[in-house]
Design a protein around this nucleic acid. Sequence first.
DNA 1: ACTATTTCCTGGATGC
DNA 2: TGCATCCAGGAAATAG
Length: 292
Amino acid sequence: MPELPEVETIARGLHKRVAGDSIEDVWLSGKSPTFKSQPREILATLPSARIVAVRRMGKHIVFDLERNGVQRWKARAVGRRTRIGKSNEAMSSHPQWIVHLGMTGRMVVCVPSEEVVKHTHAIVKLASGRELRFIDPRRFGRLSVTARGNFEAGGLEPLEVDRGQFVTLFRGRKTPIKSALLNQKLLRGVGNIYADESLFRAGIRPRRRASSLTREQLERLYASVQQVLKKAIALGGSSVSDYVDADGEEGFFQLEHRVYGREGEPCLVCKTPVKRVVLSGRSSHYCPNCQR
DNA sequence: ACTATTTCCTGGATGC
DNA sequence: TGCATCCAGGAAATAG
């Protein structure tokens, strides 16, 4: 399940491989709801665009694109005024291609002769002769296009927010702190694994109401989130459920997991068995002794 | 205005 | 071996 560190790793890998390349052609599986934008809009936007950069926003991969053929589109739009607004993204000279990997989404760069595996939903032909493919068995991933500046990835970037902002974000919320951490509208990029791992390191139980936490506890949580995310990025993310980066390499942060996926196993600090509770439909792992 | 629950998906694990 | 059932979970949609 790609969260911030995995998406960061993938985006960096993709940038290294395809920045500067151009999109020549696009094929889409047409399997809704993989596409958040209309497929026709994606097909109108991507071909002939140059990939300026690939980066991460929250859990989204953002391809910054540049189009030169804008005049052609404007000319065509003159005769059909109603399309001007609707084809806005395709019109933009600096569109963005937004990819959310969901649970099982993968982006791979390969040669065209590579077998097209089951659940391939997009194939992007590049001028260099390679292909960029989006593969997503469970189809929780989403593809969309937008004009530059339109895309809102959610709340604040966890690694850009300062301590005071972080405290303000959560203080006073009645919801469990774990749920608040997962809320992308507050902080964008933290998912189930890193929420659990951050809460363990801060010594806070997932079910604690955010409003019941002291400033000191929130500050400790802030430090934990920073530490966990940075370390996870340094290790290339967590490889669970066959996650691999853009180069097909596994990450190693799963070796640093202290509670996630360790139900019943002894806490690495105090040996108390790790507990698992379901919190708003999601598994939450914690040490009942170390976390209060 | 908030918060909680349901829904979308398929592969892998489990149970009989 | 085969078949049914359950579970994983991000975020949008829906309900409270």
